[in-house]
Computed example of a mutant assay.
Amino acid sequence: MTTKIRATLAQLVWLACAFAALLLAVGALLIALDANKSNELVQAILRGASWADLGIFSRRDGIKQFTGEGAEVKNALFNWGLAAIAWLVVGRVLERIIKP
């Protein structure tokens, strides 16, 4: 019974991390495509991505900050892209640790 619970928990952790990475990737894409930020769905995705970046990979104050033309897009793609990769790596490592 414990094996089944650990396997299920490992899957849930992986899904949560993959969902966070998806939010970040879609958020960066929306920034790159200059999506309508007054749209409720776009706002919700950008809020979710801002939460998932944990402040470390923030597009406004993250690992790397670009300046000049297209800086907002470059910041979002670079920082949120790194954050998405980090979520996937951490998720996979945690899944391997939890899984029996």
Rank of each mutant, 00 (worst) to 15 (best):
G55R: 04
T2P: 09
D34S: 10
L41C: 13
L77S: 04
S58D: 15
A71G: 12
D34P: 02
K37P: 08
V13N: 03
L77V: 07
N75C: 07
Q11H: 14
A28E: 09
I5P: 02
I5F: 09
A86V: 12
A25P: 02
S50I: 06
A76G: 03
L15G: 10
T3L: 13
G81C: 07
N79F: 14
G27S: 02
F57E: 06
P100E: 12
R96D: 14
A32Y: 02
Q43K: 05
V93T: 03
A49F: 04
V42P: 02
L82T: 02
L12W: 10
A20W: 06
A76W: 00
G91V: 01
A86H: 08
S50C: 09
P100G: 08
A52L: 11
K4D: 15
I5W: 09
V89Q: 05
K99F: 15
A44M: 14
S38K: 10
A10H: 10
G48C: 07
W80R: 00
I56C: 09
A20H: 05
V90G: 02
A52S: 10
A44T: 08
A71H: 11
L22Y: 00
R6S: 13
G27K: 00
A44N: 08
L30A: 02
L12T: 08
L22A: 04
K4Y: 15
L88E: 01
L41N: 08
M1V: 14
L30H: 00
I63G: 06
A10Q: 12
W51K: 05
F19R: 02
N79W: 09
V13W: 06
K99N: 14
F19G: 04
I31V: 12
A86G: 09
N79E: 14
G70H: 08
W87S: 03
A76Q: 03
V42E: 07
L23S: 02
W14A: 13
K37Y: 13
K74I: 11
L9F: 13
A83E: 05
N39I: 14
I98A: 01
N39W: 08
Q11K: 13
F66S: 03
L15K: 04
A35F: 07
V93C: 06
A28L: 14
A32R: 01
K64F: 15
L54G: 05
L29D: 04
M1Y: 14
G27N: 00
K4C: 14
S38L: 15
F19H: 03
V93W: 06
A83Y: 04
V26D: 01
L54N: 07
A49N: 02
I63S: 07
Q11D: 15
V13L: 10
A84E: 08
L12H: 04
W87L: 11
R6A: 14
I31K: 00
F19V: 08
G91S: 03
L88N: 00
K99L: 15
I98G: 00
L33S: 09
L24H: 00
D34W: 11
D61G: 04
E69D: 14
E40W: 08
K4V: 15
V26Y: 01
F19A: 13
I85C: 06
R47L: 15
L12N: 06
R96C: 15
K64W: 15
N75Y: 04
F78K: 00
A20Y: 05
I97T: 09
C17D: 07
L23E: 04
G55K: 03
C17E: 06
L82V: 05
N36L: 11
D61C: 07
R6W: 13
I45T: 01
D53L: 10
A44G: 09
A32V: 03
G27E: 01
K74N: 10
G70V: 08
V42F: 09
